[in-house]
């Protein structure tokens, strides 16, 4: 049994001080095996995205442990860390620099890590996410939301990470566009053996993408379950049942 690809141990994050102190994440723990897809579902303010930010080190002020392959992640994160862990952000309109050509955005990690064959790599990664290589010569405002999100995925893949954190990657997209992006993400995971941690408020998306699912509310993971249990509505906690019922209401209620 190898060490889990990613392990979160007793992670706690608080914002503010004194009376304004808010416990955003309260002793959250989970672990993800290599090649697995782990989902975190919760409503706004449940702390699910905060966990991802803590894993990446964008949010440095946390208690508890973030372990990659059984090793404590360095604080602050060293450069090598980002060759292992990358993230795709929620808002495709906000995560690409508005004044830089896509090529410049994609070139950046290659320059920083002094990788070779830069133009080849960019062309290849664009093809991998389902875009023609010519998209490198566009500016973000010339792309649709789905195309932007594909570029964001491409950027995250350039350093060939093993773990990809997905922060509501399709919540800003139309369902038809969402289908394409989710297909690309699934195909990439299979082809490259990636480990995913995906955060979403959408039960359908989480169920489609992930094999294990943590349910979060008010900063705490209240339940962890398999996707089969989720589909069969075998939930232990009242909150999980409410969440599942609300998500299904639109499908089954008549």
């Amino acid at each position: 049994m190898s060490a889990p690809s990613l392990e979160i141990a007793d992670l706690s994050i608080a914002f503010g001080h004194g009376r304004a102190r808010v416990q955003a994440v309260d002793r959250a723990s989970f672990s993800v095996a290599p090649g697995d897809a782990f989902g975190i579902i919760g409503e706004s303010g449940s702390g699910k995205s905060t966990i991802l930010r803590a894993v990446t080190g964008l949010l440095d002020d946390y208690e508890g442990g973030v372990l990659i392959d059984g090793q404590m992640a360095p604080r602050p994160r060293a450069r090598a860390f980002f060759k292992t862990v990358q993230m795709v952000f929620q808002d495709p309109y906000g995560s690409l620099h508005p004044r830089r050509m896509i090529r410049a955005t994609l070139m950046e990690p290659l320059e920083i890590y002094r990788l070779d064959r830069r133009d080849d790599r960019i062309a290849q990664v664009l093809v991998d996410v389902g875009l023609a290589p010519e998209y490198a010569y566009r500016y973000p405002h010339q792309l649709s939301g789905g195309q932007r999100q594909r570029v964001a995925v491409a950027r995250a893949l350039l350093l060939e990470p093993r773990i990809l954190l997905l922060d509501e990657p399709t919540s800003a997209l139309d369902v038809s566009v969402q289908a394409g992006v989710l297909n690309v993400l699934n195909a990439l995971r299979r082809a490259r053996g990636l480990t995913y941690v995906m955060v979403s408020h959408d039960l359908r998306v989480i169920a489609h993408m992930c094999s294990r699912i943590a349910v979060m509310t008010q900063g705490r993971i209240v339940e962890e379950m398999s996707v089969e249990d989720l589909r069969a509505q075998r939930a232990q906690e009242q909150y999980t049942r409410t969440l599942i019922a609300a998500s299904r209401a639109a499908v089954t209620a008549e």
């Binding site: 690409l96 620099h97 950046e108 990690p109 964001a152 950027r155 995250a156 350093l159």
Partner: peptide, 8 residues
């Protein structure tokens, strides 16, 4: 934030 994650 994304650029920071690229090691910039």
């Amino acid at each position: 934030a994304a650029a920071r994650l690229q090691g910039a």
